[in-house]
Simulated scan of single mutants.
Amino acid sequence: MKSSGRSCCGTGKPANKNRAARSDTGLAEIERLGGEKVLSRAVPEEAELAAQSKRYHALSDPLRLSILYILKDQPLCVCVINRFMRISGSKLSYHLSILKESGLIDGECQGNWIIYSITETGKKYVQ
């Protein structure tokens, strides 16, 4: 089989005919929808992508998910969270800080205690 001399994106790199036909259809569809500008509008701004990445990182750990679930119904102080989680204070502090930095929980000082609560954003991830 002789190469058409085109790649799927028209760079001149050889591609087989079937692949070229499929890509031409894909490129035509992209152009029909408005081209690359339309595709780029589907991608959030870099700041929003960074915030989403932080949230997904925070959600990727079972301990942090457990914390979100126990905060789902009511705010709790660190001592209650720690009693439930049964992990060292430093490890709990680490996980709470990741959840807080990602915007999934808030902490409010009340005297010597910090009371943690789930944010509206956090509630979207625990149902």
Rank of each mutant, 00 (worst) to 15 (best):
P75T: 06
S117H: 10
G10E: 04
A20P: 01
P14Q: 03
S60R: 05
E108K: 03
R6P: 11
S90A: 13
Q74A: 15
L33M: 10
T11W: 11
S93K: 12
L49P: 01
I70A: 07
E120Y: 08
R64S: 05
A15R: 04
Q52V: 14
V126C: 10
S90E: 14
I70T: 09
V78T: 13
S93F: 13
E120L: 12
Q127K: 15
L33C: 02
L96P: 11
F84Y: 07
T11C: 14
T25M: 15
R83D: 07
S90L: 13
K2D: 14
R32I: 07
S102C: 00
A15Q: 11
F84H: 12
I81A: 04
G5N: 03
G111H: 05
K13Q: 08
Y125S: 06
Y116M: 04
E36Y: 15
A51W: 12
A50T: 09
N18T: 15
R86C: 07
Y125N: 05
C77G: 08
L68P: 00
D73A: 02
K17E: 03
K91V: 08
A58W: 05
R64N: 03
K2Q: 14
M85H: 01
E48S: 00
A58C: 01
E46C: 00
L104A: 02
G111P: 08
S7H: 03
Y56T: 05
S23M: 14
T121K: 07
I67V: 04
